[in-house]
Simulated scan of single mutants.
Amino acid sequence: MMPGIISRSTETLLMLSSPLLVPSYSKAKKRYMRTREELSPRLHLASAAEAGALVSLCTNPVWLVKTRLQLQVPQQARPYSGFHDALRTIMKEEGWRALYKGLVPGLFLVTHGAIQFTAYEELRKFVINYRTDGSEINSITADTSLDSFDYAILGASSKLAAILSTYPFQVIRARLQQRPSTEGIPRYMDSLHVVEDTARFEGVRGFYKGITANVLKNAPAASITFIVYENVLNTLKFRRKD
């Protein structure tokens, strides 16, 4: 696979994973470009990771409130009435630092996109090499040797690889973000506490609770995303040539 093919998919598809990444990603790239003429794939990924970390920092309070509302039951004492009530109550009872519970595992989840798109490119490269018997590959060969079904399978497979690699961090984050007891005592003190208790009482399976629902939700979405992206890209390429 040509380096240009790898970089164009990695850069553009990382943007598709979250529109919030666009401005911070662009600023990171511009900063790296001050001392060089062209960015390497490694610097593209570094820019995306930096942008992802910033987005994680900004959106962690939203994830916290979302998690608590999802875990809330009608019988719970002092239930939140909605998003704004939850935000106000958390600030009043626990302070602003509580809004950043689960931030550390959230930062590790930034690697999810990098793993997904790296897996996609490697699988894509393998399929193209297999179908062309290892002959020299150019952009035209890459575009014509795969169809929408291939993109769907590659997209779902790469998403599955990313989920299996990073899902434990989602579990750790969700458990850290649980609402404290009525006495104000949190169930878990930090990420290490979650890891120790989960491993001790639930084993490895405890880190993958809910993964079936996650895969059923995200794998089809990834397939559709890659089908649309690759076909639109190919259409634009052919029109440009004409």
Rank of each mutant, 00 (worst) to 15 (best):
V104Y: 08
V104N: 00
V104G: 00
P105M: 08
P105D: 10
P105A: 10
G106Y: 02
G106I: 01
G106L: 03
G106T: 03
L107I: 08
L107A: 06
F108N: 00
F108W: 02
F108C: 10
F108D: 00
F108I: 06
L109N: 14
L109H: 06
V110W: 00
V110T: 09
V110Y: 01
T111W: 03
T111V: 03
H112M: 07
H112L: 09
G113W: 04
A114T: 10
A114E: 00
I115H: 00
F117R: 08
T118N: 10
T118D: 04
T118Q: 05
A119V: 01
Y120A: 02
E121D: 15
E121F: 05
E121I: 02
E122M: 09
E122R: 06
L123A: 14
L123S: 10
R124E: 15
R124A: 10
R124L: 09
R124F: 07
R124W: 01
K125M: 07
F126A: 15
I128A: 09
N129M: 12
N129G: 15
Y130A: 15
Y130H: 15
R131C: 13
R131Q: 13
T132H: 07
T132K: 12
T132D: 04
T132R: 14
T132G: 06
D133Y: 08
D133R: 13
D133Q: 11
D133A: 08
G134C: 10
G134L: 05
G134K: 06
G134V: 05
G134I: 05
S135R: 14
I137C: 05
I137T: 14
N138K: 08
N138P: 11
S139V: 07
S139H: 12
S139C: 04
S139A: 13
S139M: 09
S139Y: 06
S139T: 11
I140A: 15
T141Y: 09
T141W: 06
T141M: 13
D143E: 14
D143W: 00
D143T: 13
D143F: 04
D143M: 10
D143Y: 02
T144Q: 05
T144H: 04
S145E: 13
S145C: 11
S145K: 09
S145N: 09
S145F: 05
L146D: 02
L146S: 02
D147I: 06
D147N: 15
D147Q: 11
D147W: 02
S148K: 13
S148N: 09
S148Y: 06
S148T: 11
F149V: 13
F149I: 14
F149L: 11
D150L: 02
D150M: 02
D150G: 07
Y151M: 12
Y151C: 13
A152C: 12
L154M: 10
L154F: 07
A156Y: 07
A156C: 05
S157L: 11
S157H: 03
S157R: 05
S158C: 05
S158Y: 00
S158Q: 10
S158W: 01
S158E: 09
S158K: 05
K159F: 00
K159G: 08
L160V: 02
A161V: 03
A161I: 01
A161W: 01
A162Q: 02
A162E: 07
A162S: 14
I163V: 13
I163K: 01
I163E: 11
I163P: 00
I163Y: 00
